[in-house]
Each structure stands twice: as C-alpha cells, then as structure tokens.
Amino acid sequence: MSVPLYQAKAEFIRMLGHPVRIRVLELLQGGPMPVRALLAEIEVEASGLSQQLAVLRRSGIVTSRRAGATVVYALAGGDVADLMQAARRILTEMLAGRNELLAELREGGVAAS
C-alpha cells in the first residue's frame, strides 16, 4: 500500500523538526564538513549529534564519506539548500509582518474592536 503524498510530506517535515538537524543543514549549505567541525559549531554532545546525523543520513538528506579517521557530511542535493533558504525567506516575511503590526499597535493606528 502506498503512502499518500500529503502524508509523505508531513513525515518529511516532521523529520526536519529538530533544532540540531536544522542547524546541521544550515551549516552544510557552505559545503561538506567533518563531524568535529559540526560539533564545534553546534552546542550538543557528540552522541546527540551522531543520533541526529543518523536520522538525516537515513532520510537521504545528507551523505557521509570517510576520509581516514574522519567522517565528512554533505547535503545530498541542492534542493535541501533551496528549502532552507525558502524557510528563511518565509520566516523573515512572517516576522516583518508581526513587527509592522506591533509598530501600528504602539502608534495607536489600529482601532480596538
């Protein structure tokens, strides 16, 4: 039995729903990074980072390769970077709208209902 597309999308978005995973994806937009560099940038224990990297790897969003004793992670494709940039634009627009409303409320320009 196949999963409806909307359900697959929901599961994908749910998989992204962890701050460490989002931070990893943001960092990897700049190019492949070894685990030690990710650890230096993200305030999480090594075991926690490893767990989140495994989720991203299983989902196919990131790839890993071994370079000697070092494991290097990279985004699996450019679409992930596009998704992260789209999320940033959407959040920026949402927050800008809230700031405009807050400014109007402070100025008394919005009549009470």
Rank of each mutant, 00 (worst) to 15 (best):
G77S: 14
M15N: 03
I61C: 03
R66I: 09
T63N: 15
I90L: 12
P34G: 12
V72I: 15
L95K: 01
K9V: 12
R57A: 08
V55A: 06
A76P: 10
E26A: 08
D79T: 05
L5S: 08
E43G: 13
T92D: 04
V20M: 02
A40D: 06
S50R: 14
A112P: 02
S2D: 13
R36P: 03
R106F: 00
L75W: 02
E41N: 05
A87H: 05
S64P: 07
G60L: 05
I22Q: 08
E104M: 06
L56R: 00
N99R: 15
V62S: 04
E107A: 14
R106W: 00
I42P: 01
F12P: 01
P34T: 10
F12K: 08
F12L: 15
L91S: 06
E43A: 14
E107H: 04
S64L: 07
E11P: 06
E11C: 12
V44H: 01
R65I: 03
G78T: 12
R14L: 15
M94K: 13
E41D: 08
V35S: 09
V62Y: 02
A54T: 07
L101I: 03
S59K: 15
T92V: 02
A69C: 01
R58G: 04
G17S: 13
M33V: 03
L83M: 13
Q52I: 08
M84D: 05
E107M: 06
L102Y: 06
R23N: 10
R23S: 09
L28D: 01
A76F: 03
T92R: 07
E45Q: 14
L5K: 10
T70G: 00
A96Y: 07
Q7N: 13
A10W: 05
E45V: 12
V35I: 09
R106E: 02
G31S: 14
R66L: 11
V3N: 09
V71D: 14
A111Q: 06
A69H: 11
